[in-house]
Design a protein around this nucleic acid. Structure first.
Lengths: 107, 107
DNA sequence: TCATTGTGGACTTATTTTGTCCAAATTTAT
DNA sequence: ATAAATTTGGACAAAATAAGTCCACAATGA
């Protein structure tokens, strides 16, 4: 039986995995995406957050769904923030309620 | 029977409610907290995000739990971000999984 | 009508974050 | 073993984002 950790990886780790599976170097991918090698390295190590545009470029390059990558990006940000601010997990339930409420308010 | 909207309000709205229930003006509260009247007004209208310190000041002033206000603050931010980036609600489930995973990793 | 309160916008200042450069370390191949 | 390529780390510059201020105007109401 598999452990529960399968499928949980940070955005950076996921990008690194994609690159390694394609057997490409940082330089090759960074060049293609139009960013510095060092920057891509940092993104893979979660030392820098990619911009929206970089997420788009990467999803094109690796031929994966852009929204899926965006989801990884945001869930990562939320998780880091919650740990940093030491709020309990219920914060996410409140956020969920607010999303549907705010969406309704707009109409 | 109550509607489902009870209890869902933005951080700014909640702060405004607290102030109005105390029958205080923007100037009075802002002065006490040490910020500009205009800034407090903007915070109540969600045009500015309060800093961590301001959240602390307000929780002291209105005698409410600081963590609870912080929860409102973060859930608000998450909700706005999700709507802006148009990601689906499942993003929050992923975030939840990541929180427990990252916390375990740290030990 | 006068005084107080709240709003809106333009602008400045501060803070945060990205991105670059380069040198050192690590890995890989010959 | 050593040379070449790859990756990492840190210091710094540049850019982007966000807070905070000031002031004029609008609204409220005594």
């Amino acid at each position: 039986m598999r452990t529960t950790t399968i499928g949980v990886a940070s955005l950076g780790e996921q990008i690194r995995t994609l690159r390694e599976q394609a057997k490409l170097s940082l330089r090759e991918v960074a060049g293609e995406i139009g960013i510095d090698t060092s920057l891509l390295g940092k993104i893979e190590r979660n030392e820098r957050q990619p911009t929206k545009d970089q997420i788009k470029q990467m999803s094109y390059f690796f031929k994966i769904n852009e929204k899926a990558l965006m989801k990884e990006f945001l869930s990562d940000q939320f998780a880091y923030k919650m740990i940093e601010e030491e709020v309990d997990i219920d914060t996410l339930r409140v956020a969920e309620a607010k999303v549907s409420f705010y969406k309704k308010s707009k109409r």
